[in-house]
Amino acid sequence: MSVSVRFRQAGSWLRSPNVAIGGAITVAFVAIALVSLVWTPYAAEAQNIPARLRPPDAVHWLGTDGLGRDILSMLMVGARTSIAVAFVAVSIAALIGVPIGLWAASRQGTLLDEVLMRANDLVFAFPALLIAILITAVFGPGAINAIIAVGIYTVPVFARLTRAGAIALWPREFILAARVSGKGAVRISLEHILPNILNTLVVQATIQFALGILAEAALAYVGLGVQPPMPSWGKMLADSQMLVSVAPHAALAPGITIFLMVLGVNLLGDGLRDALDPRTGS
């Protein structure tokens, strides 16, 4: 595909309202996370007990929490945690799951295929959040283990999707032509199969990223995510729970933030799917 065709395609995607709105929200959050590396209104961990539970005003735009920390600053740093955990988890899961799926499809019907797919089923037998809780409970709470926890149940999602897509392609004529020209299974998988299922995989990655954000927040909420003083959205919700009747703003701000982030990424995923597959468009 030439560069100009790709640009035109990107232009038509942006005309889809879902892609435009979802993309804008997602980009905005990534930008906020990046800005937080160099600037936040206050230091996110700085406690100021006399100024605790302040409602939003000109000094603290989103108010302060139970320890007098600036909620906006905490949300900005929390965006970093949230996005980093979900992004790294989904990327690693795709890097493991996609080759497994390609490999299984190229050996369809063999013992290897059977073993790989049964291993996938095994992970699916555990409710996703239960795996995440067990992993973080066993290896200890923290960012790295949250990534592993979210990544583990995402691997089989990619493996299954890749295998299904690849199996549908293997009998096609252009693959046959590649085989006749002497290409091996690995080269065919990488050069012909992968580019043809990439669209589906990108859409799935978007959906998994949104689920990753929610899972990270849930883990942090029950105390198994990143540890204090590192702010995270889920932890902020947990801290605000006891004070929800006196300081509802402290519970609203992180909740709305998680909601907006997930909504944005989901809209982006839905829009991309519709744009890439005309059959599902309305």
Binding site: A218, L237, P248, A251, G255, L260, L263
Partner: peptide, 18 residues
């Protein structure tokens, strides 16, 4: 339904309590 899917259920639970 987009809104429903994006709501973290534990936060929604807190709002219900509130």
């Amino acid at each position: 339904t987009q809104i429903g899917v994006a709501l973290p259920n534990f936060w929604f639970a807190m709002l219900l309590v509130l």
